[in-house]
């Protein structure tokens, strides 16, 4: 770890901990997040974690830039990864089907694997949540097996159904709300990913681990899923 503090705006500093995306970063990132939240206390406006960085947005009426830097330095002194305080574990049920996951074909062609094998490989791995972004509750997870990696589709869809599960490069994610999007879609989860009724609003948080569980159409419907075909939306 090579910790740097960079200016990003009048009242924001970027704490840079790593230079590459790695599952092994997460215990450090979680520990640093906690320390910064404690260190800034009521003067923290927002803390935005991403793969390798934590952006601190503080109250500029309470802290001058130099003071904010000092809080960060103090908070992160002697930082050590907290392996015990791991994130939560989730199992997301997914109905993998061409009608709601049209890129199953493409991923199968690219990888030379059968569709059944693509589904198996995607669902048998445990993924880390690296960051939330793009939309409320949208969790960037990884890493998917190299053989399943695929660039975003050339023309992003105007409408991707809520619950759609996709792959972009070596990351995977599920769309919490209907939105535009360019990920390769291979299935749909009936799980509520972002909801005011959920404690903390978002089902997933950075540092959590996620597995996808294969379910059939009947189970998908029983769990409250909407089986409108993806292409019927556009």
């Amino acid at each position: 770890m090579n910790l740097r503090i960079e200016v990003v705006a009048i009242d924001c500093l970027m704490v840079r901990l790593f230079d590459t995306i790695d599952e092994a970063n997460m215990p450090w990132m979680l520990a640093a997040s906690l320390r910064l939240r404690e260190g800034f206390g009521a003067h923290l406006i927002d803390l935005v974690p991403s793969y390798t960085t934590l952006m601190v947005h503080y109250d500029l009426m309470a802290l001058a830039p130099q003071q904010a830097r000092e809080v960060i330095v103090r908070a992160l002194q002697g930082l050590s990864p907290d392996a015990a305080r791991g994130g939560r574990q989730h199992v997301l049920p997914v109905w993998y089907d061409l009608s709601v996951g049209p890129e199953l074909t493409l991923l199968s062609q690219r990888s030379g694997l059968s569709m059944v094998e693509v589904i198996k490989r995607h669902s048998q791995r445990e993924y880390q949540v690296f960051a939330l972004g793009f939309a409320p509750g949208f969790a960037f997870m990884g890493l998917v097996e190299e053989v399943l990696a695929a660039p975003r589709i050339k023309t992003p869809r105007k409408r991707v159904a809520a619950g759609s599960v996709g792959i972009a490069e070596r990351q995977t994610a599920a769309y919490p709300l209907e939105s535009p999007g360019g990920w390769n879609i291979l299935g749909r989860t009936p799980a509520r990913l972002f909801d005011r009724e959920i404690e903390g609003y978002s089902l997933m948080a950075p540092g959590d681990t996620v597995r996808f569980a294969v379910i059939d159409h009947a189970e998908f419907i029983r769990l409250g899923g909407d089986d409108t075909p993806l292409e019927a939306l556009t």
Partner: peptide
């Protein structure tokens, strides 16, 4: 770059 937090006015 790897995605990171975006401040207002970036």
């Amino acid at each position: 770059m790897i995605s990171e937090g975006i401040p207002l006015g970036a």
